[in-house]
Write a protein that binds this DNA or RNA. Structure first.
Lengths: 295, 295
DNA sequence: TTGTAGGCGTTATCAA
DNA sequence: TTGATAACGCCTACAA
């Protein structure tokens, strides 16, 4: 045993073997607990097969995403799990063309060149709006952005469909677009909401994720707006902190760890099973009602 | 240009070059926003130098930590940033012996074989207890664990020192030891706290981190315990969600991103500067008082 | 059984 | 300037 001081060289091993023993997971925002929960799900599956998950943060920046994918490609990873910044990105086509097992996470892939594991965002948007409409709201703000994120668009689409189905005028569902899905942007959106004349100001907000909802809530509380009396709030993801918020947050729950587990299973299947066929897995979201909408 | 389809092989490059272009960051818990903030700080510095940060989750499990360090060593990474599970771990000695630039994050390294970037946890513990003592508390619980985590021990030590300095009896500062620093464990600790006979039950809790504090708060609220009237709570880290909690949390703030930035700077200095000398950087924590202790 | 040669893809070096 | 060559360390296959 040359245990004393000798460590094999993984680069040489990989060069010889043609591929590495790792799985790359690229997320939009490491600071968002939604994604770290997905990561833990993926880790659980990978670890059982002796594979290591390495986490990369694109920060919703296509440039950084591109660099990370480049590195992962150069590293000849076993597979890539990614929540892409832009769904049509040609980076994804490149991965497919190179035969790198790839699973889109939290995004459906219309193109069927790759597996995907997602939650029905259109349905999620519908659930949120139906919940608010049920509570008598006729003036609602949708808070989220940027627009190029599929999640943001799909949830808005679902919201609009439910809004139309309730026979409410389209212009009574305002979109307050944010530049990111963060707590800080949520606070900022709160300020913009407050700037709308009282007569036209929405008394309810559906936020594209919980971070934005928490920011909006913070702004409301610090400026004396009562939740839910003056402003009802619905979030999205149902992260662990949603239930513990100043006013516990009504939110659309996604099966976070399951998303990660399923994605890891699919990518490892593609990497090891010759008979692999691409699958588009779609989970169903569920609305969890809490105090932030108990008007 | 063989751009069309050709991607260089990073393994071969590394094999030839002797080292990779990545920095490994191993944290105790990816799901803890404290660590993701540290990660973002490190990324900012690394990115500016064309280096990629890959994030690994040890989950406070020495086994997993060991496997990750093994992989990082085999990968001949530029450097390692790590919040070790056990401060005396020989894995750290091995890294030093192999000459792999390493910076201990959120942990001081007594041994001076490596750089470290930490926040004075003993002082943090003192600040928390002084704050509670100032508010008249004479029966306090320290909630956190496991005991082998340096953070847990140091914060307790600071707490005990401040407690003794206030001339309070040692046994009036109870330690409720948890098996992890998570929201779930905080809830569980709440149940244990509630099980203590009223006469001896602490009316204040100092939690080893904010996740535990948020869990404790959740348990209190759901079981009708009023915060801060019946139970005052102090957290640690001041993560973004602390201020937005059901009852905004008093917490000991650490400079999270700065910790990550400084760690990355030190490790890259060690990796590239022959005249590098190890440094032990110690930042100062700061108590942020909020509603959870406004008794 | 034990041992050795070759090649994976890069890049540095040396020759033409 | 251009082009061939060797070496990085590992693993596998084949030879002794």
């Amino acid at each position: 045993m040359a245990d004393l001081g000798f460590v094999r060289n993984e680069s040489a091993r990989q060069l010889r073997a043609g591929r590495s023993r790792t799985l790359g997971l690229v997320v939009l925002d490491v600071a968002n607990p939604f994604f770290t929960d997905v990561a833990r799900g993926a880790e659980a599956v990978a670890e059982a097969k002796g594979i290591v998950v390495t986490l990369y943060n694109s920060g919703s920046d296509p440039e950084r995403e591109h660099r990370h994918l480049e590195l992962l490609t150069e590293q000849r990873v076993q597979g890539v799990l990614i929540t892409p910044v832009e769904s049509g990105a040609r980076d994804l086509d490149d991965l497919a063309a190179r035969g790198i097992p790839t699973v889109l996470v939290d995004r459906g892939s219309g193109r069927r060149k790759q597996c995907s594991v997602a939650v029905d965002d259109v349905l999620g948007g519908k659930l949120a709006i139906e919940h608010l409409v049920d509570r008598g709201h006729t003036q609602v703000a949708y808070v989220g952005g940027p627009a190029h994120l599929g999640q943001v668009r799909d949830r808005l689409q679902g919201a609009r469909e439910a809004w139309a189905a309730a026979d409410l005028p389209a212009d009574a569902l305002t979109w307050i677009e944010t530049s990111a899905l963060t707590v800080a942007e949520g606070r900022e959106a709160g300020a913009r909401l407050a700037g709308i004349p009282t007569s036209r100001r929405p008394a309810a907000a559906f936020c594209a994720n919980d971070l934005v909802a928490l920011g909006l809530l913070q702004h409301a509380i610090s400026s004396g707006v009562r939740v839910p009396q003056d402003l009802s709030i619905v979030g999205y993801d149902d992260i662990e902190f949603a239930a513990a918020a100043a006013v516990p947050l009504t939110s659309v729950r996604q099966p976070r760890q399951l998303l990660g587990r399923t994605a890891a299973e699919l990518v490892l299947d593609e990497a090891t099973n010759a008979a692999h066929t691409h699958r588009q897995v779609l989970f169903t979201p569920e609305l969890v009602a809490r105090a932030s909408t108990q008007g």
